Computed example of a mutant assay.
Amino acid sequence: MDAVTASNDSPVDSLSFEAARDELVRVVAELEQGSPTLEHSLALWERGEALAARCEEWLLGAKCRLDAARDAASGGDDA
């Protein structure tokens, strides 16, 4: 419980992809083990949802950067 509480001090939108992914793995593991209270489970779930959204943001951003690099390398043609 303490590890997740400590992690909750960091705003999700400030986390790197790796930090968000690693914390998400910890949150899922704790949810799978079961929490002592429903309130704690809900807090974990909400944190997990926010972390998953942050990871998706990073991945979509990386995809856009790759697409832009491919377009630049091919001369910007839509072929």
Rank of each mutant, 00 (worst) to 15 (best):
D2L: 11
W45Y: 15
A72H: 09
P11Q: 05
D2P: 09
E18N: 13
S16A: 04
S41R: 15
E30L: 14
D22M: 02
L66F: 00
A79C: 10
V4E: 05
V27M: 10
G48T: 02
S41Y: 14
L42W: 08
V25P: 02
A52I: 03
A43V: 10
A79I: 09
E30D: 14
E23D: 13
G61L: 06
E39A: 15
S74T: 11
A3P: 09
V27Q: 04
A73P: 01
L51G: 03
S74R: 10
M1Q: 12
E18L: 04
A19W: 05
E57S: 09
L38C: 01
R65Y: 07
N8T: 02
H40R: 15
A29M: 10
L24P: 01
G76I: 02
C64E: 04
R47K: 11
L31V: 10
L15C: 03
L15R: 13
A52G: 09
M1R: 11
W45V: 10
R54H: 02
P36V: 14
A20Y: 07
D22Q: 05
D22Y: 08
L15P: 00
A43K: 12
A79L: 15
R65P: 09
C55Y: 06
A52S: 05
S16V: 01
S14W: 03
E57I: 07
N8I: 04
C55S: 07
P11C: 06
H40D: 15
A52Q: 00
A50F: 03
L44V: 11
A50G: 08
P36I: 10
M1F: 13
L31F: 01
R70T: 01
A68W: 07
S35D: 07
T37I: 12
H40G: 08
A29P: 09
A52L: 03
F17P: 01
L31G: 11
L24F: 06
A3V: 13
D71V: 07
L66Y: 06
E30S: 12
A50Y: 06
A20F: 01
L44G: 11
E23Y: 07
A72E: 03
R47M: 05
F17D: 04
E23T: 14
A50K: 15
T5G: 11
D9W: 04
A79H: 14
A3D: 09
L60P: 06
A79N: 11
S7F: 00
S16F: 04
W45D: 12
M1I: 08
A52C: 03
A29E: 10
L66T: 01
E49Y: 07
R47C: 06
S7P: 11
E57N: 08
A50Q: 15
R21A: 06
V12H: 02
P36Q: 14
G76H: 04
T37H: 01
E49G: 08
E57L: 09
W58Y: 07
A19R: 02
C55G: 06
D78Y: 10
R54V: 05
E18S: 13
E32Y: 11
A43S: 15
A69V: 02
W58F: 00
T5E: 12
R21M: 09
S14T: 14
A50M: 04
A20P: 03
E23S: 00
